[in-house]
């Protein structure tokens, strides 16, 4: 595999900063404070997972970084710029794949490179498509339509499509949550390997402790609503991490500790005032 300019690509201009984020929704006549004073940073080239109980505002945070949702308080910055709207420099992978059913796998991956904002010459497009088809193990499916693919394969297409436009930052919202356990582990390993060669700044949302530890440099554990940062855990396990890493004592210890943190959050939420 040739390392091109895209490969070691992270620069200081793509630090993601969540600065004192607050967000509330009107619910009926009520006021639901979802996020409150939530601050953390993803360093350039770093893989950071955000984990927290369901409904605590993880998707809301990601949508802010993507530029779909504006915070009520605080700012989200990528590099020096405050995020205000979607931009191809920030790729998104959605839980529900969101690949185009009327395009073949290859055309899906190529899509972003055919748009005005990011158009590339034909030869370059083909080269990029070939590269990601290979990286994601999708070559035999290049001319297949999404309806012919399994869930795991569809998500590979979505990931390839996100990498192909060469964004500084990748935002992934529980991309493997809909997959079965085995496929899920295989996808985690594939994503980990991809990161080794295609290093990007990644913000990864999950509710699986194991997934967060396996993939990340650091894990941000969120508290129950109104959500802030409970703790940031360093995952000091060197890369590359083979599948067996999941069984190593250090991994198991981290896992036990983080599950404890999450459990205390959910019991506090149940016992505490609504």
């Amino acid at each position: 595999m040739t390392l091109t300019a895209e490969a070691n690509h992270a620069t200081t201009s793509d630090r993601i900063v969540f600065d004192q984020i607050g967000k509330h929704y009107a619910r009926g006549g009520d006021h639901l404070q979802v996020l409150d004073q939530c601050s953390f940073t993803v360093e350039p080239g770093e893989f950071v997972s955000v984990i927290g109980p369901s409904g605590c505002g993880k998707t809301t945070l990601l949508n802010m970084a993507a530029g779909f949702t504006a915070p009520d308080d605080g700012t989200v910055r990528v590099g020096d710029a405050v995020v205000t709207r979607p931009h191809p420099s920030r790729g998104v992978v959605f839980q529900q794949y969101a690949i185009f059913p009327w395009l073949t796998v290859a055309k899906n991956i190529e899509f972003g490179l055919t748009l005005r904002a990011n158009r590339r010459p034909r030869a370059e497009r083909q080269r990029v498509v070939r590269r990601y088809l290979e990286l994601m193990g999708l070559e035999p499916f290049a001319s297949a339509y999404p309806k012919e693919l399994s869930g795991g394969m569809r998500q590979r297409v979505a990931i390839a499509r996100a990498y192909a436009t060469d964004p500084q930052v990748l935002l992934m919202d529980e991309p493997f949550a809909a997959l079965d356990a085995q496929t899920r582990e295989r996808m985690q390993e594939l994503l980990h390997e991809t990161q080794l060669t295609e290093r990007r700044t990644v913000l990864f949302i999950t509710h699986s402790v194991e997934e967060a530890i396996f993939l990340s440099h650091r894990v941000v554990v969120l508290s129950a609503r109104p959500t802030g940062v409970r703790e940031v855990v360093d995952i000091a396990i060197p890369a590359p991490r083979p599948a067996e890493t999941r069984l190593s004592p250090r991994f198991v210890e981290l896992r036990r500790r983080m599950e404890g943190l999450l459990r205390s959050e959910s019991t506090e939420a149940e016992g505490g005032p609504r």
């Binding site: 993507a66 191809p88 998104v92 959605f94 529900q96 185009f100 899509f111 748009l115 005005r116 499509r161």
Partner: peptide, 24 residues
């Protein structure tokens, strides 16, 4: 979600219409 996916890939409003809404 398909419209969102199109926008994050860098599509302008016309491209969202022509490349996603029309084929869909």
């Amino acid at each position: 979600l398909l419209v969102r996916a199109t926008r994050v890939l860098g599509a302008n409003p016309w491209e969202v219409f022509a490349r996603t809404v029309v084929p869909a």
